[in-house]
Structures are given as C-alpha cells and as structure tokens.
Design a protein around this nucleic acid. Structure first.
Lengths: 354, 354
DNA sequence: TGTTAGCACTCATAGAAAAGGAGTGCTAAA
DNA sequence: TTTAGCACTCCTTTTCTATGAGTGCTAACA
C-alpha cells in the first residue's frame, strides 16, 4: 500500500528538517517547514500513522519524531530530489583533482582524502583488482656500483619500483640480460604462477643470477599481493567529531577505531558495485560497528579491469542527495583522470597558497 | 639550588603515580608509592615546598598535586630511569619492520603508522630533505602504443615513476634518445635550475621532442618539490581518544583537527634534530594547539643526506621513558633498514594472520 | 469524514540545593 | 624535624524541583 501524497510530504519535511538541525522534529515544525495549509493537529495525526507504519520513530514520548532507517530508505528511493552541484562545488572538486593527482601511484589514497575533505565525513577508498592480476613488464635500471632499481608494471597499469642494494650490483649489460630473462619468464603470470616458474628457473640459472631473479620476482609478488589485498585507505577520521551524533565519546570512539583498523571492509563483498552510487542506511549495514551509521559509496573505472571505490561514513542523518552527488562527481573525475590521463573541463585549478 | 634527595624522590613518585593513574596524587598516596618511612604529614610539607618551587601544581585547593611542565622537565632531564625494552617489545618492533617495509617509497608513511601503533599515541613522520636536492637519473620505459613510463631518481635515492598516456607514444629507440637528452641536460640539477635549463632546451629541440621533455621534467620537478616540502604524514589520530585527558571533546577535537591538517609542523624549524630523541613538554611547545600536550621525537639517517623524523603527540602525562625508548629503537631499525637494506637482528617476523 | 482547538499528561533537560569526601594547611606536641 | 589531629576548602555526586516542548485524546466544527 502506498503512502498518501500528504504523508510523503510530511515524511520528507521531517527528514530534511532533521538532516539540517539534528533535532527531533515536532508537528508544529513540520507545519511550518512543508507549506501544507493544515494545522499542527492534523499533522500530528498523520505523523502518528507514519510512526505506526515504521517510517518515523520517537526517541521518547513527548519528543518530536525522527526518521527511521525505513523512512530514510523511502526518502532515498523515491522522495529525494537530485542535488544539483553548484558551479563552485564542481570547480572545487576539479581544482582538487588538478592539484593532487600528480603521481598515479597515489590515486587511491588521495581519492580518499579528497572525499573526506569534500564531504566533511570520514572517507575510505580502495581498489578492487580483477581476480587474475598479471605482470606485464619488468625493467632493471642501473644506479651505481652497489644498487639498482627494479620497476614492475602490472596489466592494470600499476607501476611500482624498488631500490636494491648489495655488495656488487650487476653492470648495465647484465641487468639488461636479467631483464630479458624476467620478461620472457614471468610476464603474463599471476601471483600463484610465480612460485612454480621461479622453481623451474632455479634449475637452469646459475647461483648468482638466480638470487637476483628471486629478489626481483618476490618484489613483484609483493606488488601483486598488495594490489589484490584490496587495502582500504581511510582519511579524515577526525571529521566524525564535527557531527553532533558522535559527540558522545562511546559512539565516536568505537566507530573511529573501527575505521582506523586497516582491515575493515565497508561491505561484506565489495564485489561489483554496479550502480553509480550506493547508499547503505544504518541497520542495513551488516557490520555491527556501522549499524548506527550510513555509508555512501561511488565507484569508478580505473582501466585495466580495476575498479576504484570511494565512500564516506556518517550518521544516518545525512544529506544523502548532496553527499552522493559530490561523491559521484568526484568518481567521474577520477575515472577520467585515471583512464585517460586528462581532467574534466571547467574549473580553474586554484593557485597553491605560497 | 638543588633539590634534596627526598624532594626528588617525592617528585618522582608524584610523576610516576600520575602517569599511571591520571589522577592528582595526594600526600598519602606518595607515602605509599615511594617507600619513604615518613608520614603523610611530612610529605605534605615537602610537597608544599615543591609547589612553591614550581615543580608541582594544584588543580584546586584540596585536590592532590599534579606535576607542572617544570616538574616533568626535571624528571626527564635527571630523574627518569632509562626504560629497558623487553624482548617482546623489540621483537614486536622488528616484526613490524619486517612485515611492512616492502617498498621503500612508503617508508615515511609506514614509519608513522608503526610509531602510532607501538605507542598508542597519534604519530607523525616526515623526512627533511637536504637543502639542495638534485636529480640523479631519468629512465623512460615503453609500455604500449599510447603510453610510456618515466622513472625519476633523486640523489637522495628516492625513486618515483609516472605513466604518461598520449595519442602516439614514442617508440623504444626514440625513448632511449629522449632519456639520454634528459640525463645529459637535467641530471644533477636542483629544482630551481630546471626551469632555466628547460628554456634553453626549448630553443634547440623540435616541437614534439620538447613537449615530451617538458612533460617528464615537470614531473621531476613535482617530485623534487614534494620531497622538499617536508610533507608531514600522520597516523593513529584516533588513538587520542583512548587517553583520559582528551575525553573532553574540545581538547580532543582541537588537537585532532590540528594534527589532521596536513600543513602542521611539529617544530618551528625541524632543522637539524641532532639528539637521538627529543622531548618537548607542554608549554615548551611553540604551537598553540600543542600547549597542553607533549611531543616525543626520534630521528634517523635515511642516507643520501636525508633525515627522517618520527614522533608522537600525547598528554603531558606521558611515560616519557617508555615512549622515547620505543621511538628511538624504532628509529634505529628504520635507519638500518633504509640505509643498508637489512634489518636488525633478533625477532622473528610474525606470521600474517590468514 | 476530515480538520481543528483545547487540554491534560509525559518526560527529558537544566538548575539549585544538599550531602559526601579527599586532601590540604596549620597548630601543637613528641 | 617529624608527627598526629583537626578545621576548612572545594570538587563531585546525588537529589530534587521547575520548565517546557510535544504528544495523544476528546469534542466541536465544516
């Protein structure tokens, strides 16, 4: 059964007022907020029904009403207007993208930081690597007599490098040979295939060569491992304290330490978030620590089969329209930046403060 | 004038009890803590004198005494025993070093995280680059038809790379030539010298070549710039809430947002922290936001003229002996790891939880 | 039948008042 | 110089008492 138009208007008014003021809203306040030409008594009756239907809740008798998770869900699904980003907002996001995204290596981390800054909520960012990540290419660069650099690239276009130090580093010619060996033997392999191949190589190659190969390959394995671990980066955890629902230490602390724990996962299976943005409200969260909070996420294509995910965590009383608009715009910008190496139009980069 | 032995013992007892319990300590408590065979009344008299001399403070009449910054300073300088790390502690630190320090690029960031974890306080980490950082070497690696990678190395052994995408990337041979151009023209230059040299090159080279060179050089400039900016990494900010002095939101929030602000600097001039560890107590801090907190820092040599700095921020009531011992051990481990590429002995790496 | 005004009732919150207690400073005796 | 005794201070905790916003219900009204 569907709610009457008036009930929807009232529910919406309750939510929007509550989002703004963080205080339970009474019948009188609703009467003013939504310009329904009825008295507060009428609204009281309607609100009582909305409570019975489970869309509103009372913290205690004789307090105003507060939206329930069910109420928020209806709002998000049906009632919410699209939030139109202002020119200022888009410019701000573009400027941040311009300024920050220098090294591609740091995209994920920076993306989280930017999300936190843009929303004033704690944010997280991670990248979901495709099941079977493989190595694309090795390069060994000479540095000096006792060190060289190995550069490893995966088929998802991630590049990592490491400096190796030793008594006597191989000369340039030898490095080139080693590089060829590595590229012919190990390019195209997944993490699981590296070990066996390494064992095979150990039988042909001489001691010294094998040791070098083993060093570089285990570095490559670490890179693949790290990428597949879907490490979650968090940023702006301190933002939590700015919002009144986390002014009570217990709430704040438990959520904070949950977020600060590197091993947290925002979703049970962050598998394939297909939708542009994804909103999980309060008790809809599977994770215990998030039951009183909501999560808004947006995903973006990183090319090479990788998908990036950014999201924020906040109180259930959250301006879902605004936050998801911002996140999804940011995600779009990231997608463009990462996959095409160029930025969305519009929005001059800010001059860095000198 | 020097304090009597008994006064020192009392001061020490007050500090150590206060560090443990976070509550003002009364004369009776001191009598029990330090096994002086005198009554509480005697101690009361001594404590009154210590208050007059400025080593102790009273939150209010009829509360116990609390150490003042001056008291802590005396304790740190003279009274404090060296804290002996337990085997467990050293093993834990070594294990963390083993596990985490895969890519050298992330040393600074990881160092901060480790410091936070080991001390349970918010930590920061930064690296002080030498005044005149220069580029040592460029390498350009082909990837596919529309992209290549530039690898840049500085004379402080930092290596960074970036993937460049374009319509038609240069072929391998052309890349090699470009690399030679870059290495002969720009290796050995400081950030300031890059611009002029680029201008000179622009006159000889043809359009296409120049554009590529300009792309890579500005990436190199970004790398140098980033390194010289002495970016501060923070970690474990949420740890603050675990300590009772930050249970009042105002304190916690102001310090947290101060720490979360990327631009904060732990010292006015982090110039050359010569001592192994450095302790700055409460009001000794120049920065307003740190007036009620203490900072413990340790520095380590990163090779190539760079110096790393790790530190933690906590309440003035802090176990200075323990914290500085841990930090300095960690700093030593980092120094060895970074400059020689090998780890301190002792301490098996923990198995990662699977 | 839906809407409105009126009114008693509930209950969280704020403030004032009172009780409790830890620790001090002082005095006088050992 | 040390100690016991004691009055005094002042923070903390608890209890009590307004205050007031908001509700639910009833009865009148369109």
């Amino acid at each position: 059964m569907d709610l009457s138009d008036r009930k929807k208007k009232i529910l919406r008014a309750v939510i929007e007022s509550y989002v703004q003021n963080a205080e339970p809203v009474g019948s009188k306040a609703v009467a003013q907020w939504a310009h329904l030409d009825v008295s507060s008594a009428t609204i009281r009756n309607e609100m009582a029904e909305l409570s019975e239907l489970g869309y509103l809740e009372q913290p205690h008798t004789s307090a105003g009403r507060v939206p329930s998770a069910k109420g928020y869900r209806l709002y998000v699904n049906e009632l919410m207007d699209d939030y139109k980003l202002s020119l200022q907002e888009t410019q701000r996001i573009n400027a941040a993208l311009h300024q920050k995204m220098k090294a591609l290596d740091k995209v994920i981390d920076e993306a989280g930081r930017m999300a936190a800054k843009l929303t004033q909520y704690p944010a997280f960012a991670l990248a979901a690597a495709p099941e079977k990540l493989t190595l694309r290419r090795f390069d060994l660069l000479p540095v000096d007599q006792n060190s060289f650099i190995a550069v490893v690239m995966t088929d998802s276009n991630v590049v990592r490098n490491k400096l190796f130090r030793m008594e006597h580093a191989p000369a340039e010619a030898e490095l080139q040979m080693l590089g060829t060996l590595l590229n012919t033997g190990f390019a195209g392999l997944t993490l699981a295939q590296l070990g066996p191949e390494l064992a095979r190589v150990s039988q042909h190659a001489n001691q010294g060569t094998y040791e070098l190969i083993e060093m570089v390959v285990s570095f490559a394995a670490e890179v693949l491992d790290e990428l597949q671990k879907r490490e979650v980066h968090t940023a702006g955890i301190a933002n939590l304290l700015e919002h009144p629902e986390y002014q009570s230490l217990e709430k704040a602390q438990s959520l904070m330490s949950f977020l600060a724990d590197e091993s947290f996962t925002p979703l049970p299976a962050t598998a394939a978030p297909t939708a542009m943005t994804n909103i999980v409200i309060g008790p809809e969260n599977v994770n215990e620590a998030l039951k009183d909070s909501s999560v808004v996420m947006a995903s973006y294509d990183m090319g090479g089969g990788m998908r990036g995910l950014i999201g924020v965590v906040g109180p259930t009383r959250m301006d879902y329209a605004k936050i998801s608009a911002r996140l999804s715009y940011l995600a779009q910008g990231l997608a463009q930046l990462v996959s095409q190496g160029q930025l969305p139009p519009g929005g001059e980069p800010e001059k860095p403060k000198s």
